[in-house]
Design a protein around this nucleic acid. Structure first.
Length: 491
RNA sequence: GGUUCCUUGGCCGAGUGGCUAGGCGGCGGUCUGCAAAACCGUAUACGGCGGUUCGAAUCCGCCAGGAACCUCCA
């Protein structure tokens, strides 16, 4: 099969043919969440997109080790709150909880949200707090190489020194001169040689709760270190793909490259992939901007902006309907369009199971397959793949209505393809509620009413028939009459 | 201010130097007791101004508007 995957590499700013370091195996690292609050829609995008990548790589036959970290220490607060304490401990004080209690709480919700979105768990989900020793060792070796210095109990990366031999800024297309003129001088950073130096180890202030002993001070690791450490530990000093949001390219990923290169003379990843942002009213959705909607709010509809609740699969489909390197703009209208489209797709998947076969086909299943895979091979172009999938929907419905014919062999191929595409690769799933006792009673009741309606129809008692249909409709039960009976579904 | 990028039909969103993206919505038709669903058909487009070209929405320039990053951020 000509499945040549091409991906856009931020490092080269070009699409490149993907060739793993070791044939048949892929090492994938994606920056995971900082678990200090509920995940919002903006967070869902990278995890859904990289889930698609993970699934597609596996479909292509690669054995993938997918590492996605949990940041449960560190990430410094901004200067506004004077102390440089980390986000997690700040939140903990507010809520009067142990830091690790906060971490656990939001990690649990994160996992729950990911399950709802049908995002597969990664192969390894390492936590920063579990790799303090490795981070200390990493700092030691950067110090030994002379690319870091200690100041007042903290350790900083010496960007200027590093840039003398390597290029700091190669990922985000900057050079040091440019960074120098544009880096703000922040308060409380006098101990740094240069404003653009970043912390490898930060001495904890007295109020800081999360802290670990080290030879320099009681403190905590710098924001960028954990990813360097954990990716190297589980994937090696050089691995295949590193992913994350575009907003992480600078400085986070740039610093990761610097740290790895300072230690080993080579950068951590060969391909860097960055997903674009979800916007709302044209502006990036971000916690700091206060314009975010959490996933739980989306699923329940409990947010002033939301006209209704949107199911996890609607969100997933919405995200996949845009290319990962484009922004997607959130709106109720857009979500509802996705919801309807998804319903149409899933209905066709059901219809597929009861299609009549003919001796010969008038449809071209192979061409459809090729177009879909060609789209995915071209930098994971899920919107094109989905557009083609709707060609498949049309094909299915046309066979159903008799406008087209399909042979038994082609039908088998089509079934296999649609299932692979929809469930395995795009990661969509049926969202019908499980067959609980309550549901059995409900469906029995609806069947009963609709059988009564059938009687009424037989007697040409249209008033009664319509009354039943209209009132069930008002309650959210959609009714479709068929030649020999009826079908219904819950809206 | 610096770096990078975007501007497509009512909405969301692909894409290519000449050939229908797709979804949702609209309109007309088929089917139906009427609907719904489905099917068939159909309309609405490439921010503005120049340039290159036989031909540009797609390449170049300028202008306008917007965004991301430069600071925690998916």
């Amino acid at each position: 099969m000509e499945n040549q995957l091409i991906i856009y590499n931020t490092l080269s700013r070009e699409k490149e043919v993907f060739k793993p370091l070791v044939e048949g195996k892929v090492g994938l690292y994606v920056c995971g969440p900082t678990v200090y609050s509920n995940s919002h829609l903006g967070h869902a995008r990278p995890f859904i997109f990289f889930d698609l990548l993970y699934r597609y790589l596996m479909f292509l036959g690669y054995k993938v080790r997918y590492v996605r970290n949990i940041t449960d220490v560190g990430h410094l607060e901004n200067e506004a709150d004077e102390s440089g304490e980390d986000k997690i401990s700040k939140k903990a004080r507010v809520e009067q909880l142990e830091p690790m209690e906060v971490v656990q709480k939001y990690m649990n919700t994160f996992h729950q949200n990911m399950t709802q979105l049908n995002v597969l768990p990664p192969s390894i989900e390492p936590r920063a707090s579990g790799h303090i020793i490795e981070q200390l060792e990493f700092i030691d070796s950067i110090l030994e190489k002379g690319y870091a210095y200690e100041a007042n109990g903290s350790v900083y990366f010496d960007v200027e020194k590093y840039n003398g031999e390597y290029h700091y800024g190669k990922l985000s297309g900057r050079d040091l001169e440019n960074i120098k003129t544009n880096t703000r001088r922040l308060e409380g950073q006098e101990e740094k040689k240069n404003a653009f130096d970043f912390a490898l180890w930060k001495k904890a202030s007295p109020s800081h709760i999360m802290r670990w002993p080290s030879k320099w001070s009681n403190g905590f690791p710098g924001w960028h270190l954990e990813c360097s450490v954990m990716s190297a530990k589980y994937l090696g000093d050089v691995f295949d793909i590193h992913g994350g949001g575009m907003d992480l390219a600078f400085p986070h990923h740039e610093c990761e490259i610097a740290q790895a290169t300072a230690k080993k003379g080579k950068g951590p990843a060969r391909y860097w992939m960055h997903n674009n942002m979800i916007t709302i009213n044209g502006q990036k959705m971000a916690r700091s901007l206060g314009n975010f909607i959490t996933l739980d709010e989306l699923f329940t509809g409990e947010h002033a902006i939301l006209e209704k609740a949107y199911s996890p699969m609607t969100i997933r489909f919405f995200v996949l309907q845009a290319h990962y390197r484009s922004t997607i703009d959130f709106s109720n209208e857009a979500l509802q369009a996705s919801e309807k489209g998804l319903e149409r797709l899933m209905t066709a998947v059901e219809t597929l199971e009861k299609l009549p076969v003919a001796s010969e086909s008038t449809v071209d299943v192979s061409a459809l397959k090729e177009k879909c895979f060609a789209a995915l091979n071209d930098d994971l172009n899920s919107p094109i793949a989905i557009a083609n999938l709707f060609e498949g929907v049309k094909m299915i419905n046309s066979v159903k209505t008799g406008h087209e014919k399909i042979s038994a062999k082609d039908l088998e191929e089509l079934k296999g393809f649609i299932h692979t595409m929809v469930f395995d690769i795009l990661g969509l799933k049926e969202e019908q509620p499980a067959d609980s006792e309550e549901n059995k009673i409900l469906s029995g009741t609806i069947d009963l009413l609709l059988n009564v309606r059938m009687e009424a129809k037989k007697n040409k008692d249209w008033a009664t028939a319509d009354k039943i249909r209209d009132e069930l409709n008002a309650l959210g039960v959609e009714i479709k009459d068929t030649k020999d009976g009826f079908e219904w579904s819950l809206r």
